[in-house]
């Protein structure tokens, strides 16, 4: 697993999707046609993989046939085997995400507004952020046991820093004149937070939301993989233990679909909450 440096906050890219869509249209290919091309590309790659596997050119043991992977996925779903695991993983990810986001938002706002605290905490936060998070997994296993809490703690350390640094940047980058204007209109500190700082930081928080949702799930799965009694990571580790590569790929595939669906929902939410943003035409 890569441990990104979450300090490097992502600049929000206003109206990214729409711009891309426009550019595509200008290049003469409609969205619908592009979908068709994408499907064709996927079919070609998967088909080649399948054929090469059947022809014995790539080793079926390490790269199981796509058809076998899908069959395994189907059997995991139809027998209901995967759902309890998925449910556990989702619980862990959701808890890690909720607690990590809440803590990141709170501390981000606090430190952005209180300069003294920011200067006080800065080196420590840098130190913890520099720590490759995977090394924490063993100690969390010892502290919190094999149950869900060790994974929640692990996911928390991933989510927290991303949300925290983005919130900090977001609040500190609020346009000075907007704050002054609100103050002149009689805003109290609380009203400033509500009407100016939170909406302004939202763009930053959202740009981190996609990553932090992914990291919450990553944290849960990696934690499970390293030691657990349930969860998709555990299921993958089980399959690996008996050299069942189809099972490993099936677990990966299911996770991928789940993350895609969640990302789609986050996109929806983002588009609704940031509807005031100008759509930039390039």
């Amino acid at each position: 697993m890569t441990v990104l440096n979450s300090r490097k906050a992502l600049k929000p890219a206003p109206g990214e999707g729409t711009t891309a869509a426009r550019a595509r249209r200008r290049n003469g290919t409609s969205d619908g046609m592009m979908r068709v091309y994408q499907l064709v590309l996927a079919a070609v790659v998967l088909g080649a993989w399948e054929l090469l596997g059947r022809a014995g050119i790539i080793d079926e043991f390490f790269f199981p046939l796509p058809s076998d992977i899908l069959a395994t996925v189907w059997s995991w779903i139809s027998t209901g085997y995967v759902f309890p695991h998925l449910w556990i993983t989702m619980q862990e990810a959701l808890l890690a995400f909720a607690v990590g986001t809440a803590a990141g938002l709170f501390l981000g706002f606090l430190l952005a507004r209180v300069r003294f605290l920011e200067r006080l905490f800065d080196p420590f936060l840098q130190m913890f952020n520099a720590l490759p998070r995977v090394v924490l997994a063993p100690i969390f296993l010892l502290w919190f046991g094999l149950g869900i809490w060790s994974k929640v703690a692990f996911g928390f350390t991933l989510v927290f820093f991303i949300v925290f640094f983005n919130t900090l940047e977001g609040v500190k980058n609020v346009d000075r004149v907007l704050v002054d204007n609100a103050r002149m209109l009689g805003a109290s500190e609380k009203q400033l937070l509500r009407h100016v700082f939170i909406p302004s930081a939202l763009t930053w928080i959202f740009s981190s939301l996609h990553i932090s949702v992914g990291f919450a799930i990553t944290g849960a799965v990696v934690g499970e993989y390293l030691g657990a009694s349930a969860g998709v990571g555990y299921a993958i580790a089980q399959a690996q233990g008996v050299f069942d590569t189809q099972g490993v790929f099936a677990g990966m595939f299911i996770l991928m679909i789940v993350v895609l669906i969640i990302d789609l929902l986050v996109n929806r939410l983002e588009r609704y909450l940031l509807r005031w943003r100008p759509v930039q035409s390039s």
């Binding site: 004149v177 907007l178 002054d180 204007n181 209109l185 009407h195 100016v196 939202l202 005031w276 943003r277």
Partner: peptide
């Protein structure tokens, strides 16, 4: 009340 030299309307409202 203050009318600022720059645009000071809250863009999200």
């Amino acid at each position: 009340s203050y009318m600022f030299q720059q645009d000071a309307l809250l863009p999200w409202k």
